[in-house]
């Protein structure tokens, strides 16, 4: 019985870097040898969601959405475009952040079993990636003491789950007590990332946007909104002092190599036999092996 991993992501018609994290994480999983095949698919690039299943030869296909929240794409667009027969969002039995996986068939491919997983963004392991991102941007493997952490989301989109995912991880990280303060902030709703310094008493705040890829929002909007640069084209320093607070801006969390671990965890929980790949990938990408 051969198994394939299909990582589905948004992609872009305009920005070539949008698919870079998807390719990078796919390559990490490929190198781990956990799957006979690994393939990327995109809403805006190729192969499309619509045609990706026919490009893999395996009988067992694990589909992991590289999206930050449960919502329009994971619940409507991806299942529809993959032609998943009998898909119903109830199968995930999710409260908005607890989707797991469901097993279905797809109408255009015979003999394949499709294990459709929840998005990486709402998996528990994503909290570890956010922390790891904070470590990467500060260059301090023990960052936390004396630091605040802001987890930033887009905010009001097509459904409320986008904010839920941000709060979910902010709450989980806060409970660990590693950082002095942890706040969930948003681009388009209160509390807004524009006033980031106001929400923290700490002199140093790490800002981690829960986005899959760097692009317009993470490279232009958020840096300018926070005031770490007047013009994104001029770049910004890390950290940059804003109103007396050092802002350590991390850029999209999705570019963090440890994301490959979340992809693997999703597939493994859906039944994929990944052997010791999770331990190895965590170790290679800076996570804690065996955690």
């Amino acid at each position: 019985m051969s198994q394939a991993l299909v990582i589905v992501a948004h992609g872009s018609h305009l920005n070539p870097d949008s698919s870079t994290p998807t390719f990078d994480h796919a390559d990490t999983v490929r190198a781990s040898g956990a799957f006979d095949e690994v393939r990327e698919a995109f809403w805006k690039e190729e192969p499309s969601f619509r045609e990706v299943l026919r490009t893999v030869e395996a009988d067992e296909v694990y589909v992991v959405p590289l999206f930050v929240s449960e919502g329009y794409f994971t619940e409507q667009v991806i299942p529809r475009e993959l032609r998943l027969d009998g898909w119903d969002v109830e199968q995930w039995d999710s409260d908005g952040t607890s989707a797991d996986h469901t097993t279905l068939t797809a109408r255009d491919v015979e003999g394949k079993t499709v294990h459709y997983c929840g998005p990486v963004g709402t998996h528990d392991a994503m909290s570890d990636v956010i922390v790891q991102r904070a470590e990467s941007v500060t260059g301090d493997a023990d960052v936390g003491d004396g630091f605040g952490l802001a987890v930033v989301g887009h905010g009001t989109e097509r459904n409320e789950n986008s904010a839920k995912a941000i709060h979910y991880h902010a709450d989980r990280i806060r409970e660990t007590g590693r950082f002095d303060e942890v706040e969930a902030l948003f681009m388009d709703e209160e509390p807004e990332v524009d006033d980031v310094a106001e929400f923290f008493e700490s002199d140093d705040v790490v800002v981690v946007p829960l986005f899959i890829a760097d692009g317009f929002h993470t490279q232009e909007d958020i840096p300018e909104d926070m005031g770490i640069t007047d013009d994104y084209r001029m770049g910004y320093d890390v950290p940059t002092a804003v109103d007396g607070t050092n802002i350590w801006y991390a850029g999209a969390v999705g570019t963090e190599p440890l994301m490959a671990d979340v992809v693997l965890e999703r597939a493994a929980e859906a039944g994929a036999d990944v052997g010791d790949a999770i331990v190895r990938v965590r170790s290679e990408t800076g996570g804690v092996a065996g955690d």
Partner: peptide, 11 residues
């Protein structure tokens, strides 16, 4: 070939 022209061989 599938990376240059995705899904073309399958179709």
């Amino acid at each position: 070939v599938d990376f240059f022209y995705p899904a073309t061989v399958a179709n």
